[in-house]
Amino acid sequence: MESNETKPEKVHTSVLLNEVIEWLAPKPGGLYLDGTLGMAGHSSAILDAAGEGAQLAGLDRDEQALKLAGTRLEPYGEQAHRFHLAFSKFEAALDELGWDTIDGVVLDLGVSSLHLDRGERGFSFIKEGPLDMRMDPAGGMPPASSIINKGSYSDINRILKLYGEEPLASRITKAIIKAREEKKITTTLELASIVEKAYPAKRRALSRTHPATKTFQGLRIAVNSELEELQKFLQRIPDRLNPGARVAIISFHSLEDRIVKKAFKAESQNCDCPPMQPICTCGKVKRLNILSKKPILPTQEEMAVNPRSRSAKLRVAERAAEHES
């Protein structure tokens, strides 16, 4: 019998679920892509809303998530297809299924409860575990411990400053370098303690979040090449969308949100030529229409029930018709 800890609906609460379904507007017979399958909360809701004949391809780098998602998607039979792939490799899944184009796609970026609630995955700064942070441990990427113990001062400082947006990046990096000279830093709580001690006492007292929050965020993004994955996806997904198909992306980090916003804006415009150039020579044609001028945020009710939704932002765009200009 499945325990509550392994039931997908107990492990993860899908963020902005109602909003995603409202904007995607799934339809009977439609083909859909969930690039971050997780525990299949968004996927199962899409299939429920779409009804008869709809199919969905769900991708995830995490084999544990795929296994749990399989349990949740079992009632949908051949309507649901799972792939052990990063979402930047979505074409491989579509090609295997013989889908030239699709009718909608959702991405729910960042980490899930499956990662944060299980200390052995190495994502949490409040649970002991190996300093890992890899979404796909078998994927060949080095763990976070490799960056912390082998990275140069400039590399670690850049990761904490750029990806973690940590104002005390330099101070924390110096503390990490000093600590690793005495012994290797191998666990999450070891690193969290080093970061916490690097924070001035007054700043620690006034902080609303754990001092290690931004450090762990920066490392996780670097370990999994999350921003590069997102950029690759955004460059290519418009080519596989039917006219009117919608792409809904939920981000939890300002860097992710800026990348999505910038990509949507670029794809919603004709011509990349300099403003002073009298004649267009680039030949660029817009591929997307932006549907959400501002990011869609969780309701107060959702944030009260699921505090992890507080930083979520949803942006939605639609594939432009061929004749639009």
Rank of each mutant, 00 (worst) to 15 (best):
E2Q: 13
S3A: 08
T13M: 03
L16A: 01
I21N: 07
I21A: 03
A25S: 14
K27F: 12
Y32C: 02
T36I: 09
L47E: 02
L59E: 11
R61M: 13
E63K: 14
Q64E: 15
A65M: 07
A65D: 12
K67L: 14
A69M: 09
G70L: 08
G77M: 09
E78G: 00
H81N: 14
H81W: 09
L85D: 13
S88G: 05
A93Q: 06
G98R: 10
D100I: 01
V111Y: 14
G122L: 04
K127M: 11
D132I: 02
I156S: 02
L160R: 01
K161R: 15
P167Y: 09
A169F: 08
S170M: 10
I176H: 02
I177W: 00
K178F: 05
T186I: 05
Y199I: 06
A205Y: 04
L206P: 00
H210V: 02
H210Q: 12
H210E: 07
T213D: 09
R220P: 10
S225I: 00
S225H: 15
L227V: 04
E229T: 04
E229S: 07
L230W: 09
L234Q: 06
D239H: 07
G244P: 03
R246L: 05
V247A: 12
S254A: 12
R258N: 11
C273L: 11
C282W: 04
K286M: 15
R287I: 01
P295A: 11
E301F: 07
E302L: 05
V305K: 12
P307N: 09
R308N: 07
S309V: 12
R310M: 05
S311H: 01
A312D: 07
R319T: 00
